[in-house]
């Protein structure tokens, strides 16, 4: 093909197009055949390279550290799923194979546990009683209750000489003429707080510097903390209807 075209760049786009078309004209020569063979190979190799490039090369190109962390993730996930499987299978077998009242008992047990938390069930067990006399404000009492909760008290009630009030999640405290108001019930000082929980944690929680004992003591009142193995929280709140 080189015979007619001068060895110079095409001057116009028409000439360029003409050259391109002429280069596509069939012409038989040894090099043309060779070029054709090369193009066959090129097409074949391109398709082979495209086909031989599955998504798995994503992993093949990943670095070793990435692969290790990937494997770790998978192993952890498998362990998590395995433990969940065994947990669910155990639960299933208990429900299916066990005593026919076992499911009911389990549900009752959970209802009781939730009832203790919600304050609809009486609770007794080891704990402390705190007798407070003298000047007591609602904010001091609130601080004391928060401190008891932080120390892990499972049930708390506040009583005066004739009334008991259970302290639950939505209890509120206010000041009244000769004592405090707890969730709308006016209590007269002296009052007694009964808390069920770990004595060895609850007692120091009341005695920390700046805690209940300090505050009431500096106001001229007295605080008596008595650990007891038979702390009884007998007051309950009515079950919410909704």
């Amino acid at each position: 093909m080189g015979m007619h075209s001068a060895p110079r760049p095409a001057r116009t786009s028409a000439e360029a197009r003409f050259r391109l078309i002429r280069s596509l004209k069939p012409a038989m020569s040894r090099t043309q055949i060779m070029i054709t063979v090369l193009f066959v190979v090129l097409g074949f190799a391109t398709m082979a390279a495209i086909r031989g490039n599955p998504a798995s090369t994503l992993l093949a190109n990943a670095r070793q550290s990435d692969l290790v962390s990937l494997l770790d993730d998978l192993a952890q996930r498998e362990a998590r799923l395995q433990s969940e499987i065994s947990r669910l299978e155990t639960a299933r077998e208990t429900l299916l194979g066990g005593d026919q009242y076992q499911a009911l008992n389990e549900a009752k047990r959970r209802a009781t546990a939730l009832g203790k938390l919600a304050g609809t069930e009486p609770v007794s067990g080891s704990g402390i009683t705190i007798a407070i006399s003298g000047n007591l404000t609602a904010s001091t009492l609130l601080d004391a209750i928060q401190e008891l909760r932080d120390a892990g008290a499972t049930a708390i009630q506040i009583s005066d000489s004739n009334l008991d009030v259970r302290v639950v999640a939505n209890s509120w405290f206010g000041d009244s003429e000769n004592g405090v108001t707890v969730s709308g019930t006016a209590l007269e000082v002296p009052i007694t707080i009964t808390a069920v929980g770990d004595q060895s944690v609850l007692t120091p929680a009341m005695k920390i510097p700046g805690g209940l004992e300090d505050t009431v003591g500096s106001g001229g009142g007295t605080v008596t903390i008595t650990p007891t193995d038979d702390a009884t929280v007998s007051a309950v709140v009515p079950l919410p209807t909704s």
């Binding site: 070029i35 193009f39 066959v40 074949f44 082979a48 086909r51």
Partner: peptide, 27 residues
């Protein structure tokens, strides 16, 4: 023109034969 046809033939061959690239050639 003939090389262009050759390219097409190669592509078609690759599509039909599903060649597997030998491992040593893959990179």
């Amino acid at each position: 023109m003939i090389p262009a046809i050759g390219l097409l033939v190669g592509v078609l061959l690759g599509l039909i034969l599903h060649p597997t690239v030998p491992l040593w050639l893959q990179p």
